[in-house]
Design a protein around this nucleic acid. Structure first.
Lengths: 213, 213, 213, 213
DNA sequence: TATGAATGAGTCTTCATTCAT
DNA sequence: GATGAATGAAGACTCATTCAT
């Protein structure tokens, strides 16, 4: 933070500095409470330069959301090996997800809280990202269901709901893992896999889910 | 909206009108973006009266959160019969929860989104309510686990994580049920019970959870 | 203060309670910063009653000034015996003045500070009172000068200036006596008589003024 | 007034223009009654600029007090030659004082009336300045008393009271000199020297004080 | 005699945004 | 590539004052 005032840097670099500052400020204060003054100062530049590069507060916020949404989905994708069994893919994806959100709390605040709190230009950006993830999870469930042979046709809406629930639980656990002291990404992922894959019923019968590899 | 200007009402009534207007406006716009002018107009009173009765924007927001938190927990409590088996209690509670949030979308927005987005006076109010709910769910899980005999000692942190995941999934599904057209409270509750109680693994084996009564 | 809410009192009494509260509030806060709300509450009545009896904030303030000006001049007049020598009259007047201001600090604040700080309806009220006092002192000086024979004709403007200086010094010492701990009215009066009657020159020669009786 | 709108001036210059406008407005209306709008307009700038440079109404008022206190003490100091006899120093100081206050009536109103009328951030500023002046006068009296040999030990509190009375008389005469038509600074100073140094007693005996050079 | 209910108008303050260099 | 100077517009909050009872 408080970046040293390096004069005359190439535009691309300056822009990233500004986005860093903006993500931090938006994440901490929220969209409305964050002031362009504060962002400019944190980025170590003058306000007119922020406007020259990023155009407006709205555009700046949108740019933050896009960059961080891309970063998050990239992190999750990078954690998953497509060939492996569905539950393993899910486990890997969740681990990557919890790791990334723990390491980028401001970014996660922007995506999960701030962007959804303010009307339409922004919510849509996040919705797009979320849909991508839900689609990924949905497909995992479908594949797994087919592999299990027995119940080939979980109705589509049902699957959509399940994926939604799983993602929602993950989002919620991200906040929990960041707050409760000493909860690691792996622990959060394990908790969720137990919950989602085995189900409370199985758990209580003494049949938890366990990573296959 | 634009309530008819009934002059000279007793204070208690006016206050509820103001809270109605405030919940609506905060729910739609967010805390910062909502203006006291707008709230006063929607309530059909002048701004000074809002300040006279509710003191400040912060206090007004807090009053909204408190009222709606109380209403939500009351609705859930009213839906649950303590004597019944744990899964039935959970099902009833979820149904009440999805019904209430669907009928009070602005209130739910205030509690779930707006209050958490802004710093400490507010977040704490919601956290209190949420902890009450998580405690309720936690205890249901513990009771159910004991009843199942087989796994008498799910570790405490594990249970906490599971309850957290369940509540998080419910919160997330509330938004989904309100957005996706034609998803009823019962459907949302059923989806979640399947997910949480049976688990994806069982579901795919063709063993869904079903309400016991 | 915090007067017990005695309902249904005769108008004259209520008015005095209101003026008491107003003098206190105006004296502490100043004209603009004092609010009618605070005054009404301190007086133990509702605001409309204050307006019914005293009309407006301006009128209320004016009424305060008038009452307290009258009280102060009355106190000074009551302290002076017309037959006595001029310096004795002055000494008695000053003692009465310092005593009264010490016992009514809010009233003195209203007269000396608050009333003069705000434009014309008010300043004039105080000016009138002040002129009365200055005239009294002027006449004392003229009488004393005549009695001394030697300098029968102090020019008129000179005398006006001297009276002005004496009164100004007294006003200033009133604040000092109220602030500096343990300075009594008599001490303040003695200091001023020395200063004014004997003069620094005489004092330094070892010739202080002393009360003649 | 209504300064020509010179756009784009360096900050230091603009700040002085703002302080000029503020001293005028505060001096005329008082702290509370002066509006930032009026000050900004008189300064020929927009309100946000005033806030950008001077921070808040409180800070602006404090800045006025400080600037004018400094200017007044500087003017008095500049009028006095340390080597000369005490009465001559006093005479020179008073002349400088009356001259300065006559030429800067708004500044004098701010220092003498407005600042003292409003609570603690402000009164302290003036008190500091006043104490400096009282200390200067006190020391003059002490020096003169020593030089006169005869009464080497005027008690300390006595001297403090005398200095207080002298300064109070001067402050009071400043208003008188500004109000009564045709009273010059020299005349005011002469009146006060007669009053203070010779004393009414001597005056009436035909022994006025006269400047020694 | 006395008040609970209500408001028009104004004040301080902040913020996103631009111009001129 | 970069900034010091400047503002229109809006928002939270307060206050003197009145109406209906």
């Amino acid at each position: 933070m408080g970046a040293v005032k390096n004069k005359r840097m190439p535009r691309a670099v300056r822009e990233q500095q500004m986005l860093d500052a903006a993500v931090h400020t938006f994440g901490q204060r929220g969209y409305r409470a964050a002031s362009m003054d504060e962002i400019a100062e944190l980025a170590g530049v003058s306000k007119p330069l922020v406007y020259l590069y990023l155009n407006s507060k709205e555009d700046l916020f949108t740019a933050c959301i896009r960059r961080e949404a891309k970063a998050l989905t990239a992190a999750v994708r990078a954690g998953v090996r497509p060939g492996l069994p569905a539950d393993r893919q899910l486990w890997d994806g969740l681990t990557a997800f919890f790791t990334h959100t723990a390491q980028n709390p401001d970014a996660w605040s922007v995506l999960h809280l701030q962007a959804r709190t303010h009307g339409e230009p922004f919510a849509a950006e996040v919705t797009a990202m979320r849909e991508e993830i839900v689609a990924f999870v949905t497909q995992l469930i479908v594949v797994a269901a087919r592999a299990a042979h027995r119940n080939p046709s979980l109705p589509e809406r049902e699957v959509a709901g399940l994926a939604e629930a799983l993602v929602g639980a993950a989002e919620s656990l991200a906040a929990w893992a960041n707050t409760a002291p000493g909860v690691s990404a792996k622990q959060a992922a394990a908790t969720l896999m137990n919950f989602a894959w085995a189900g409370l019923g199985d758990l209580m019968e003494g049949r938890p889910w366990a990573p296959s590899a």
